[in-house]
């Protein structure tokens, strides 16, 4: 059974939620002189578009069946790891951060530790030479 219908419904729900949020938050944006709609107009229209399209898609897919595939844990782990990137960057610097993410990424993808370590080392060297020495990126 394909996982696509489950993801379709998840995105449709997200569209409905974001559309409703955009409509709600737009109400607090200022109007123009003379009572004409100002900065709120466009986000409100987009909110409406997302809300209606999301509901439409949910209705269309109401009978479609699908289930998740089991690899979602790895994805969540990687995303949580990415959210820690600003802290890691502060603690260990740019090239080591890149190396750590490469190492964790390759390990999560099922690469053997020795090969993952080598890849992480190559990326660290590349980032140091290209980004930090050649381009002068701080970090």
């Amino acid at each position: 059974m394909s996982s696509q219908p489950a993801w379709e419904r998840a995105v449709a729900l997200l569209a409905v939620a974001l559309g409703a949020l955009a409509l709600f938050l737009s109400r607090s944006l200022p109007q123009m002189e003379g009572g004409y709609p100002g900065p709120a107009l466009f986000p409100s229209l987009l909110g409406l578009l997302l809300l209606l399209s999301g509901l439409g898609l949910l209705w269309q897919r109401r009978r479609a069946r699908g289930r998740l595939q089991g690899g979602e844990g790895r994805v969540v782990l990687a995303l949580l790891g990415l959210a820690l990137a600003p802290l890691l960057l502060e603690w260990v610097g740019l090239s080591l951060t890149a190396s750590i993410y490469t190492l964790v990424g390759t390990l999560l993808l099922g690469v053997r530790p020795a090969a993952a370590l080598t890849t992480g080392g190559v990326v660290a060297l590349l980032v140091y030479l290209v980004f930090q020495r050649f381009l002068g990126v701080q970090g």
Partner: peptide, 20 residues
Amino acid sequence: RVLMGAVLGLCVVGAYAVNN
């Protein structure tokens, strides 16, 4: 899989390098 691991590391660096 090895290439994709490297892509993840480079994405982090790339996103940071745009604006520091």
